[in-house]
Amino acid sequence: MDLKQLTALVTVSDVGSVTKAARLLRVVQPAVSRHIRSLEEEIGVRLFERTSQGMTLTPAGEILTERARRALLELERARAEIRPDRGQVQGIVTIGLLESTVEILAAPLMESVARRHPGIDLRLLSAFSGHLQQWLDDGAVDMTLLYNLASTPSISVTPLLHESLWAVAPPGAALGDVGSLTWDHVTRQPLVLPVAGHGLRTLIDEALGTAGVEPTVACQTNSMLLQKKLVSSGTGWSVLPAAGVAEDVATGRLSGGPLTDPEVSRTVVLALQRGGRIPAAVEVVATEVFRVTRRLVENGAWPTARAVERRD
């Protein structure tokens, strides 16, 4: 098993075609086919189902491709770290962002890392908290934002900030003009909510139970973008973290404001795996995450957020 075989495996799995993979790798098609065939012979199982629609991974192929992708990434990281020193921290760093923080955090973080540490290749992945934690466990990300999570034997967690949940409605509702938004007020409207089992939905259900109110659920979805689109179209109101709707409220695409009675907040944390050597590039990006989030809180760009003091 060699790097050319693993590269061919991952590329064919990504594009679903030997011909397309050969074009991307800038080699002839028979070479890619040969790498895949020799890999299958070495392992003793079929890695792809070959159909008229293209190449589809078998269950065995999915397992090997996941491991191969990780191995290739680690080699790429090693090359970046040991490249001749240009007087700056270098390397590849992959960070997971909660979907609700992407609009407010992604661009400032990228700009700050590029300006202060141009030798770092920063890669951003976005998902819900459960997926991000799994990616951290699997090594697919070097660090990730999560919420309401304490440190575990395998994960080191440092709180960044506390932020409130907001009621979100179509622009005409003018929630910003309402003195106090209670859960009773919100549940008079049909609600567009995350699906059951989602971490945010758990917070919402706990608050509804404390308030003693029963909502009418118009729709459930696993997409925050879809939640906002449905609210904007008048399907119902919703409840979302402040970071996820700050820009929409500021530009008038939605109206919103923090909920009270009970007030509900979540703690956004930065999580890294425990054990092993932490590359310098990962350490400086973690510092930039703290720096940027604090700046966003202090200048009011992250509404109703309260920074947590960092303890080194």
Rank of each mutant, 00 (worst) to 15 (best):
M1N: 05
T7Q: 15
A8D: 00
A8H: 02
V10Q: 03
V10G: 05
T11K: 06
S13M: 01
G16S: 11
G16V: 01
A21G: 05
A22W: 00
L24G: 04
L25I: 08
L25Y: 09
L25E: 03
V28P: 08
Q29L: 00
V32L: 00
L39K: 14
L39Q: 09
E41A: 13
I43Y: 13
G44L: 00
G44E: 00
V45A: 07
R46D: 00
T56N: 00
A60M: 00
E62V: 08
E62H: 05
L64I: 01
E66G: 11
R70P: 01
L72C: 10
L73H: 11
E74K: 06
R77N: 04
A80E: 12
P84I: 06
V89T: 14
G91F: 01
G91P: 11
I92E: 05
T94W: 06
T94Y: 14
T94M: 13
T94S: 08
I95M: 02
L97R: 06
E99Y: 02
S100G: 06
S100Y: 04
T101W: 14
E103M: 03
L105H: 07
A106L: 11
P108T: 10
P108W: 05
P108G: 06
M110G: 09
R116A: 09
R116W: 03
R116Y: 04
H117R: 02
P118T: 15
G119T: 06
G119S: 10
L124W: 15
L125T: 15
A127N: 02
F128W: 12
S129G: 01
H131E: 04
L136R: 02
D137S: 01
D137Y: 11
G139H: 01
D142Q: 08
T144H: 09
N148M: 06
T158I: 05
T158S: 14
L161N: 15
L161C: 15
S164W: 04
L165S: 06
W166A: 15
A167G: 12
P171A: 05
G179P: 08
G179D: 12
G179K: 11
G179F: 11
S180G: 08
D184V: 13
H185M: 07
Q189I: 09
L191K: 09
L191F: 02
V192M: 12
L193W: 15
V195Y: 08
A196F: 03
G199T: 07
T202A: 09
D205I: 09
E206P: 07
G212F: 00
P215K: 13
T216C: 07
T216L: 07
T221S: 12
M224A: 13
M224W: 12
K229D: 14
G234C: 04
P241W: 10
P241Y: 13
P241H: 02
P241I: 11
A242R: 10
A243M: 02
G244Y: 04
E247D: 02
E247A: 13
G252R: 02
R253L: 08
G256M: 15
G256W: 12
G257E: 04
T260Q: 01
E263Y: 14
V264M: 02
R266V: 08
T267F: 11
L272I: 03
R274F: 01
A281R: 06
V282Y: 05
V284G: 10
V284H: 12
T293V: 11
R295D: 12
V297Q: 14
N299Q: 03
P303T: 03
A307Y: 03
V308G: 10
R310C: 15
